[in-house]
């Protein structure tokens, strides 16, 4: 015990001098922290507070209703579908973007002709907004215009591929567009990471007779951990933005089959003047992000803190 306590104790002793030593650089970081704190946290608290009231339009005579809004929210089918869709989309988008991005990166890493050109082409969708991506894929997945029609004209008359009009699989139609947009960037990021890995590691694994795929999984991927973290952060912020994609592709249809939470909130707040419910929904989104994010973040960053 005494040994383990020694570390933090000396740290504490040094602290006052440290606090002033880097004063200039600490001041440099203040604006950012302050702005984020005031605007984001301020507005969030405001939202949470109003989720317990029966506000319809602002400024409104607020009436405290406790958990009423939450009860109504969880009783509503539309909300449940939204949650389910986001969960499916989030999980699939994360795993598939990483897998596809990694496979493509491994493919390009092996000295392909015109690598630069191919890389640029695959990266391009990332420069397109979700709105434009959604529109382009809406046309491709359209049964009369797009893929289904083209395949049928080749002679396969019974071919059917119409995900956007099928309530069961509509979220996967949206997923295709999302992955098309994002995996190119993941590829470039991971390719950059792979290029940073020492050639000697490849030589050593070849000498040992380890097959290439095993080297990738057990040696290369663990070494690329920081790159993966950046990739996951960028994919995750894309998952939050799926709203644009849904609106452009299906507007939440057919029926309410492809609703997502962000769309639900916007609809309640801006179109059906039901602020309390909208605030309750956004508070739930906030809560679920925290529940998933905080344990992960502490596992990821907590371990390295003393390193």
């Amino acid at each position: 015990m005494a040994v383990t306590d020694a570390g933090p104790a000396t740290e504490v002793a040094k602290r006052p001098s440290r606090l002033f030593k880097n004063l200039a650089s600490k001041i440099a970081a203040v604006p950012m922290v302050l702005v984020a704190l005031v605007i984001f946290v301020g507005c969030t608290i405001w939202t949470i507070y109003h989720s317990f009231t029966r506000s319809r339009l602002l400024p409104a005579p607020e009436k405290w209703v406790g958990l009423d809004n939450y009860e109504r929210l969880w009783g509503e089918n539309r909300w449940l579908i939204s949650i389910e869709n986001l969960a499916i989309y989030g999980f699939c988008s994360l795993t598939l973007s990483l897998t596809i991005g990694f496979v493509l990166a491994a493919l390009l890493d092996r000295k392909i002709r015109f690598e630069n050109t191919i890389r640029t082409i695959i990266l391009y969708p990332f420069a397109l907004s979700f709105v434009v991506t959604g529109l382009a894929w809406q046309w491709i997945l359209n049964p009369q215009l797009g893929l289904q029609n083209v395949v049928r004209s080749w002679g396969w008359e019974s071919f059917a591929f119409d995900p956007l009009n099928n309530a069961e699989i509509v979220i996967f139609g949206i997923l295709i567009a999302g992955i098309w947009q994002g995996s190119g960037f993941v590829m470039v990021l991971l390719l950059a990471g792979m290029r940073g890995i020492d050639e000697d590691i490849w030589k050593a694994s070849r000498v040992e007779g380890i097959p290439a795929w095993k080297t990738y999984i057990f040696i290369v991927i663990p070494m690329m951990r920081p790159v993966f973290v950046t990739a996951i952060v960028i994919i995750a912020s894309g998952i939050i933005k799926v709203y644009d994609l849904v609106v452009a592709q299906t507007s939440g249809g057919p029926g309410i089959a492809s609703e997502v939470p962000a769309k639900y909130v916007i609809e309640k707040m801006f179109f059906s003047q039901n602020l309390g419910l909208g605030f309750a929904a956004s508070t739930m989104m906030l809560l679920s992000v925290l529940v998933v994010l905080i344990p992960w973040a502490y596992l990821e960053f907590g371990g390295k803190k003393n390193g």
């Binding site: 507005c43 508070t283 906030l286």
Partner: peptide, 10 residues
Amino acid sequence: KMLPAAAVLY
């Protein structure tokens, strides 16, 4: 960045 923008939008 991960938090839903919807919570701040209104």
